[in-house]
Design a protein around this nucleic acid. Sequence first.
DNA 1: CGAATTGA
DNA 2: TCAATTCGG
Length: 340
Amino acid sequence: MGVDLGELVEPEEISFADLNDKVIAVDAMNTMYQFLSIIRQRDGTPLKDSDGNTTSHLSGLFYRSINLLEKNIRPVYVFDGKPPQLKAKEAKERRKKREEAREEWEKLKEEGKISEAYSKATQSSKLTGDMIEEAQKLLDAMGLPYIVAESEGEAQAAYMVQKGSVYAVGSQDWDCLLFGADVMVRNLTSRKTRKTSGGGRKEVSTEKIDLESVLDQLDISHEKLQWLGILVGTDFNPDGIYGIGPKTALELVKQYDSFDDLMEDDKVEWESDNDPDKILDFFQNPPVEDTDFEFESPDKEEIRNVLIEQHDFSEKRVNSGLEKLDTALESRQSGLDSFT
DNA sequence: CGAATTGA
DNA sequence: TCAATTCGG
Protein backbone atom coordinates (compact mmCIF):
# COMPACT_ATOMS: atom_id res chain seq x y z
CA MET A 1 0.00 0.00 0.00
CA GLY A 2 2.85 2.35 0.63
CA VAL A 3 3.14 5.73 2.28
CA ASP A 4 0.20 7.27 4.09
CA LEU A 5 0.43 11.02 3.74
CA GLY A 6 -3.29 11.50 4.13
CA GLU A 7 -3.08 13.09 7.55
CA LEU A 8 -0.40 15.61 6.60
CA VAL A 9 -1.87 16.87 3.36
CA GLU A 10 -5.06 18.68 2.49
CA PRO A 11 -6.05 17.49 -0.98
CA GLU A 12 -8.04 19.70 -3.32
CA GLU A 13 -11.51 18.37 -4.02
CA ILE A 14 -12.31 18.39 -7.70
CA SER A 15 -15.01 17.06 -10.00
CA PHE A 16 -14.70 15.10 -13.22
CA ALA A 17 -15.47 18.34 -15.06
CA ASP A 18 -12.13 19.71 -13.85
CA LEU A 19 -10.43 16.87 -15.69
CA ASN A 20 -12.17 17.56 -19.00
CA ASP A 21 -9.96 16.75 -21.97
CA LYS A 22 -7.12 15.50 -19.75
CA VAL A 23 -5.09 12.36 -20.32
CA ILE A 24 -4.45 10.48 -17.09
CA ALA A 25 -1.87 7.74 -16.56
CA VAL A 26 -3.89 5.32 -14.50
CA ASP A 27 -2.00 2.94 -12.26
CA ALA A 28 -3.50 -0.24 -13.69
CA MET A 29 -2.42 -2.61 -10.95
CA ASN A 30 -3.65 -0.32 -8.21
CA THR A 31 -6.97 0.13 -9.97
CA MET A 32 -7.57 -3.52 -10.83
CA TYR A 33 -6.58 -4.62 -7.38
CA GLN A 34 -9.21 -2.25 -6.06
CA PHE A 35 -11.84 -3.75 -8.35
CA LEU A 36 -10.82 -7.25 -7.42
CA SER A 37 -11.07 -6.48 -3.72
CA ILE A 38 -14.40 -4.71 -3.86
CA ILE A 39 -16.47 -6.21 -6.66
CA ARG A 40 -17.71 -9.27 -4.82
CA GLN A 41 -20.82 -10.99 -3.62
CA ARG A 42 -21.86 -10.72 -0.03
CA ASP A 43 -19.91 -13.79 1.04
CA GLY A 44 -16.80 -12.44 -0.66
CA THR A 45 -16.84 -14.56 -3.81
CA PRO A 46 -15.63 -12.46 -6.77
CA LEU A 47 -17.54 -12.39 -10.06
CA LYS A 48 -16.61 -15.36 -12.22
CA ASP A 49 -17.43 -16.72 -15.68
CA SER A 50 -18.69 -20.26 -16.17
CA ASP A 51 -15.13 -21.57 -16.47
CA GLY A 52 -14.39 -20.24 -13.01
CA ASN A 53 -12.18 -17.35 -14.20
CA THR A 54 -12.46 -14.23 -12.04
CA THR A 55 -13.99 -11.31 -13.94
CA SER A 56 -14.42 -8.60 -11.29
CA HIS A 57 -11.51 -6.62 -12.68
CA LEU A 58 -12.95 -6.73 -16.21
CA SER A 59 -16.30 -5.45 -15.05
CA GLY A 60 -14.64 -2.60 -13.17
CA LEU A 61 -12.32 -1.71 -16.02
CA PHE A 62 -15.09 -1.72 -18.63
CA TYR A 63 -17.59 0.47 -16.81
CA ARG A 64 -15.01 2.77 -15.19
CA SER A 65 -13.32 3.47 -18.52
CA ILE A 66 -16.64 4.28 -20.15
CA ASN A 67 -17.49 6.67 -17.33
CA LEU A 68 -14.17 8.47 -17.75
CA LEU A 69 -14.58 8.73 -21.52
CA GLU A 70 -18.11 10.07 -21.06
CA LYS A 71 -16.58 12.92 -19.08
CA ASN A 72 -13.95 13.33 -21.78
CA ILE A 73 -11.18 12.05 -19.51
CA ARG A 74 -8.82 9.73 -21.36
CA PRO A 75 -7.05 6.99 -19.42
CA VAL A 76 -3.77 5.41 -20.46
CA TYR A 77 -3.26 2.39 -18.24
CA VAL A 78 0.19 1.70 -16.83
CA PHE A 79 0.99 -1.86 -15.73
CA ASP A 80 3.88 -3.02 -13.57
CA GLY A 81 6.78 -4.68 -15.33
CA LYS A 82 9.47 -6.70 -13.60
CA PRO A 83 9.22 -6.32 -9.82
CA PRO A 84 12.35 -4.68 -8.42
CA GLN A 85 14.68 -6.73 -6.26
CA LEU A 86 13.78 -4.40 -3.39
CA LYS A 87 10.27 -5.84 -3.42
CA ALA A 88 11.21 -9.53 -3.30
CA LYS A 89 10.98 -10.03 0.43
CA GLU A 90 7.79 -8.05 0.82
CA ALA A 91 6.22 -10.02 -2.01
CA LYS A 92 6.90 -13.23 -0.14
CA GLU A 93 5.25 -11.92 3.03
CA ARG A 94 2.24 -10.66 1.11
CA ARG A 95 1.80 -14.04 -0.51
CA LYS A 96 1.80 -15.71 2.90
CA LYS A 97 -0.75 -13.26 4.30
CA ARG A 98 -2.96 -13.76 1.25
CA GLU A 99 -2.90 -17.50 1.60
CA GLU A 100 -3.78 -17.30 5.28
CA ALA A 101 -6.64 -14.94 4.51
CA ARG A 102 -7.92 -17.27 1.81
CA GLU A 103 -8.02 -20.21 4.20
CA GLU A 104 -9.88 -18.21 6.83
CA TRP A 105 -12.28 -16.97 4.18
CA GLU A 106 -13.15 -20.53 3.07
CA LYS A 107 -13.67 -21.52 6.69
CA LEU A 108 -15.89 -18.55 7.61
CA LYS A 109 -17.88 -19.03 4.41
CA GLU A 110 -18.52 -22.67 5.35
CA GLU A 111 -19.68 -21.56 8.77
CA GLY A 112 -22.04 -19.06 7.21
CA LYS A 113 -20.35 -16.05 8.79
CA ILE A 114 -20.97 -13.94 5.74
CA SER A 115 -19.73 -10.49 6.71
CA GLU A 116 -16.60 -11.77 8.42
CA ALA A 117 -15.91 -13.90 5.37
CA TYR A 118 -16.15 -10.84 3.13
CA SER A 119 -13.31 -8.99 4.83
CA LYS A 120 -11.05 -12.04 4.61
CA ALA A 121 -11.93 -12.43 0.95
CA THR A 122 -10.82 -8.85 0.32
CA GLN A 123 -7.46 -9.57 1.91
CA SER A 124 -7.02 -12.70 -0.16
CA SER A 125 -7.23 -10.83 -3.48
CA LYS A 126 -4.59 -11.82 -5.98
CA LEU A 127 -4.10 -10.48 -9.51
CA THR A 128 -2.92 -13.35 -11.67
CA GLY A 129 -1.09 -13.23 -14.99
CA ASP A 130 -4.22 -14.44 -16.74
CA MET A 131 -6.29 -11.66 -15.26
CA ILE A 132 -3.79 -9.06 -16.41
CA GLU A 133 -3.74 -10.58 -19.89
CA GLU A 134 -7.53 -10.52 -20.17
CA ALA A 135 -7.59 -6.91 -18.98
CA GLN A 136 -5.11 -5.94 -21.68
CA LYS A 137 -7.17 -7.76 -24.28
CA LEU A 138 -10.20 -5.74 -23.22
CA LEU A 139 -8.28 -2.46 -23.34
CA ASP A 140 -7.06 -3.30 -26.86
CA ALA A 141 -10.63 -3.94 -27.93
CA MET A 142 -11.77 -0.65 -26.40
CA GLY A 143 -9.02 1.23 -28.22
CA LEU A 144 -7.50 2.37 -24.93
CA PRO A 145 -3.70 2.47 -24.73
CA TYR A 146 -1.68 0.75 -22.07
CA ILE A 147 1.97 0.65 -21.22
CA VAL A 148 3.87 -2.10 -19.49
CA ALA A 149 6.46 -0.37 -17.34
CA GLU A 150 10.08 -1.45 -17.21
CA SER A 151 9.65 -1.89 -13.45
CA GLU A 152 7.18 -0.10 -11.16
CA GLY A 153 4.08 1.30 -12.83
CA GLU A 154 3.96 4.19 -10.35
CA ALA A 155 7.44 5.26 -11.39
CA GLN A 156 6.61 5.06 -15.08
CA ALA A 157 3.38 7.00 -14.62
CA ALA A 158 5.18 9.70 -12.61
CA TYR A 159 7.77 10.00 -15.37
CA MET A 160 5.03 10.46 -17.94
CA VAL A 161 3.64 13.39 -15.95
CA GLN A 162 7.10 14.94 -15.73
CA LYS A 163 7.53 14.60 -19.48
CA GLY A 164 4.17 16.26 -20.00
CA SER A 165 2.72 13.37 -22.00
CA VAL A 166 -0.07 13.02 -19.43
CA TYR A 167 -1.69 15.45 -17.01
CA ALA A 168 -1.64 13.36 -13.85
CA VAL A 169 -1.20 9.94 -12.31
CA GLY A 170 -4.46 8.30 -11.32
CA SER A 171 -3.79 6.18 -8.24
CA GLN A 172 -4.72 5.81 -4.60
CA ASP A 173 -1.07 5.40 -3.73
CA TRP A 174 0.91 8.35 -2.40
CA ASP A 175 4.12 6.69 -3.57
CA CYS A 176 3.81 8.31 -6.98
CA LEU A 177 4.65 11.64 -5.31
CA LEU A 178 7.91 10.13 -4.08
CA PHE A 179 8.63 9.16 -7.68
CA GLY A 180 8.11 12.79 -8.61
CA ALA A 181 4.62 12.91 -10.14
CA ASP A 182 3.77 16.62 -10.29
CA VAL A 183 0.06 15.92 -10.10
CA MET A 184 -1.86 12.94 -8.81
CA VAL A 185 -5.58 12.27 -8.76
CA ARG A 186 -7.23 10.03 -6.19
CA ASN A 187 -10.73 8.52 -6.12
CA LEU A 188 -11.27 8.61 -9.87
CA THR A 189 -14.69 7.11 -9.31
CA SER A 190 -18.18 8.22 -10.20
CA ARG A 191 -19.67 6.91 -6.99
CA LYS A 192 -19.75 9.55 -4.29
CA THR A 193 -20.31 7.54 -1.13
CA ARG A 194 -18.47 4.59 0.33
CA LYS A 195 -19.41 2.14 3.02
CA THR A 196 -17.38 2.36 6.20
CA SER A 197 -16.39 -0.58 8.39
CA GLY A 198 -18.94 0.57 10.96
CA GLY A 199 -21.77 0.11 8.48
CA GLY A 200 -22.10 3.85 7.98
CA ARG A 201 -21.63 5.80 4.81
CA LYS A 202 -18.88 8.26 4.02
CA GLU A 203 -18.57 10.90 1.32
CA VAL A 204 -15.73 10.40 -1.12
CA SER A 205 -14.73 13.00 -3.64
CA THR A 206 -12.21 13.01 -6.39
CA GLU A 207 -9.03 14.68 -5.15
CA LYS A 208 -6.21 16.43 -6.94
CA ILE A 209 -2.85 16.61 -5.24
CA ASP A 210 -0.10 18.86 -6.59
CA LEU A 211 3.38 17.86 -5.56
CA GLU A 212 4.39 21.50 -5.35
CA SER A 213 1.54 22.30 -3.01
CA VAL A 214 2.37 19.29 -0.83
CA LEU A 215 5.96 20.47 -0.50
CA ASP A 216 4.66 23.97 0.24
CA GLN A 217 2.28 22.75 2.92
CA LEU A 218 4.91 20.60 4.57
CA ASP A 219 7.65 23.15 3.95
CA ILE A 220 10.19 20.57 2.81
CA SER A 221 12.05 19.68 -0.40
CA HIS A 222 11.10 16.79 -2.66
CA GLU A 223 14.06 14.80 -1.42
CA LYS A 224 12.93 15.28 2.17
CA LEU A 225 9.50 14.04 1.17
CA GLN A 226 11.23 10.90 -0.03
CA TRP A 227 13.01 10.62 3.33
CA LEU A 228 9.69 11.10 5.07
CA GLY A 229 8.12 8.36 3.00
CA ILE A 230 10.89 5.97 3.86
CA LEU A 231 10.50 6.71 7.58
CA VAL A 232 6.74 6.15 7.47
CA GLY A 233 6.93 3.11 5.21
CA THR A 234 6.92 2.39 1.47
CA ASP A 235 6.38 -0.69 -0.66
CA PHE A 236 10.05 -1.47 -0.04
CA ASN A 237 9.91 -1.17 3.76
CA PRO A 238 6.19 -1.61 4.46
CA ASP A 239 6.42 -1.44 8.24
CA GLY A 240 8.23 1.88 8.25
CA ILE A 241 10.02 2.62 11.47
CA TYR A 242 8.51 1.62 14.77
CA GLY A 243 7.15 4.60 16.67
CA ILE A 244 7.41 7.03 13.76
CA GLY A 245 4.21 8.21 12.12
CA PRO A 246 3.75 11.00 9.61
CA LYS A 247 3.97 13.82 12.15
CA THR A 248 7.16 12.66 13.84
CA ALA A 249 8.65 11.87 10.45
CA LEU A 250 7.98 15.41 9.28
CA GLU A 251 9.69 16.88 12.34
CA LEU A 252 12.66 14.56 11.90
CA VAL A 253 13.33 15.24 8.23
CA LYS A 254 13.33 18.97 8.95
CA GLN A 255 16.11 18.50 11.48
CA TYR A 256 18.66 17.04 9.10
CA ASP A 257 20.51 18.07 6.00
CA SER A 258 21.55 14.61 4.87
CA PHE A 259 19.80 11.27 4.68
CA ASP A 260 22.70 9.49 6.35
CA ASP A 261 22.56 11.84 9.35
CA LEU A 262 18.80 11.35 9.59
CA MET A 263 19.21 7.60 9.68
CA GLU A 264 21.62 8.04 12.62
CA ASP A 265 18.93 9.70 14.76
CA ASP A 266 18.16 7.84 18.00
CA LYS A 267 14.51 7.45 17.05
CA VAL A 268 15.40 5.68 13.81
CA GLU A 269 15.72 1.95 14.35
CA TRP A 270 16.01 0.46 10.90
CA GLU A 271 14.56 -3.04 10.73
CA SER A 272 13.93 -3.71 7.06
CA ASP A 273 16.32 -6.04 5.23
CA ASN A 274 16.57 -3.47 2.46
CA ASP A 275 19.30 -0.84 2.56
CA PRO A 276 17.63 2.57 3.07
CA ASP A 277 20.08 4.20 0.65
CA LYS A 278 19.01 1.76 -2.04
CA ILE A 279 15.35 2.59 -1.44
CA LEU A 280 16.08 6.31 -1.69
CA ASP A 281 18.05 5.73 -4.88
CA PHE A 282 15.17 3.74 -6.35
CA PHE A 283 12.76 6.62 -5.80
CA GLN A 284 15.25 9.02 -7.39
CA ASN A 285 16.34 6.86 -10.33
CA PRO A 286 13.72 4.22 -11.07
CA PRO A 287 13.84 2.32 -14.36
CA VAL A 288 11.46 4.09 -16.74
CA GLU A 289 11.20 4.37 -20.49
CA ASP A 290 9.90 6.64 -23.23
CA THR A 291 6.91 4.92 -24.75
CA ASP A 292 4.39 6.40 -27.12
CA PHE A 293 0.74 5.60 -26.94
CA GLU A 294 -2.35 6.48 -28.87
CA PHE A 295 -6.08 6.22 -28.52
CA GLU A 296 -7.95 4.22 -31.14
CA SER A 297 -11.54 3.53 -32.06
CA PRO A 298 -13.14 0.74 -30.10
CA ASP A 299 -13.76 -2.57 -31.85
CA LYS A 300 -17.26 -3.30 -30.59
CA GLU A 301 -17.37 -6.81 -32.03
CA GLU A 302 -14.16 -7.67 -30.20
CA ILE A 303 -15.44 -6.14 -26.97
CA ARG A 304 -18.55 -8.31 -27.27
CA ASN A 305 -16.36 -11.30 -28.02
CA VAL A 306 -14.18 -10.81 -24.93
CA LEU A 307 -16.93 -9.94 -22.49
CA ILE A 308 -19.97 -11.87 -23.72
CA GLU A 309 -18.54 -14.90 -25.55
CA GLN A 310 -15.49 -15.50 -23.44
CA HIS A 311 -16.54 -14.28 -20.01
CA ASP A 312 -20.32 -14.63 -19.84
CA PHE A 313 -21.19 -10.95 -19.41
CA SER A 314 -24.84 -10.26 -20.16
CA GLU A 315 -25.40 -9.08 -23.70
CA LYS A 316 -27.87 -6.46 -22.53
CA ARG A 317 -25.47 -4.83 -20.09
CA VAL A 318 -22.53 -4.87 -22.46
CA ASN A 319 -24.60 -3.37 -25.25
CA SER A 320 -25.81 -0.53 -23.09
CA GLY A 321 -22.20 0.09 -22.11
CA LEU A 322 -21.23 0.16 -25.79
CA GLU A 323 -23.95 2.69 -26.49
CA LYS A 324 -22.58 4.98 -23.83
CA LEU A 325 -19.12 4.48 -25.31
CA ASP A 326 -20.44 5.54 -28.72
CA THR A 327 -22.06 8.72 -27.51
CA ALA A 328 -18.97 9.54 -25.46
CA LEU A 329 -16.68 9.28 -28.48
CA GLU A 330 -19.11 11.02 -30.82
CA SER A 331 -19.44 14.03 -28.58
CA ARG A 332 -15.67 14.16 -28.29
CA GLN A 333 -15.40 14.12 -32.09
CA SER A 334 -17.88 16.97 -32.51
CA GLY A 335 -16.09 18.83 -29.72
CA LEU A 336 -12.87 18.65 -31.71
CA ASP A 337 -14.56 19.64 -34.96
CA SER A 338 -15.81 22.87 -33.47
CA PHE A 339 -12.20 23.85 -32.85
CA THR A 340 -11.00 23.53 -36.42
C1' DC B 1 -17.29 -0.70 -8.22
C1' DG B 2 -21.06 0.60 -11.20
C1' DA B 3 -25.62 -0.87 -13.32
C1' DA B 4 -30.17 -2.21 -12.57
C1' DT B 5 -34.00 -2.59 -9.80
C1' DT B 6 -36.88 -1.53 -5.96
C1' DG B 7 -39.69 1.10 -2.92
C1' DA B 8 -41.20 5.14 -0.49
C1' DT C 1 -38.07 10.95 -8.59
C1' DC C 2 -34.36 9.40 -6.03
C1' DA C 3 -32.11 7.04 -2.17
C1' DA C 4 -31.42 2.41 -0.83
C1' DT C 5 -30.67 -2.21 -2.05
C1' DT C 6 -29.40 -5.95 -4.94
C1' DC C 7 -27.23 -7.81 -8.98
C1' DG C 8 -23.55 -8.61 -12.00
C1' DG C 9 -20.25 -13.13 -13.73
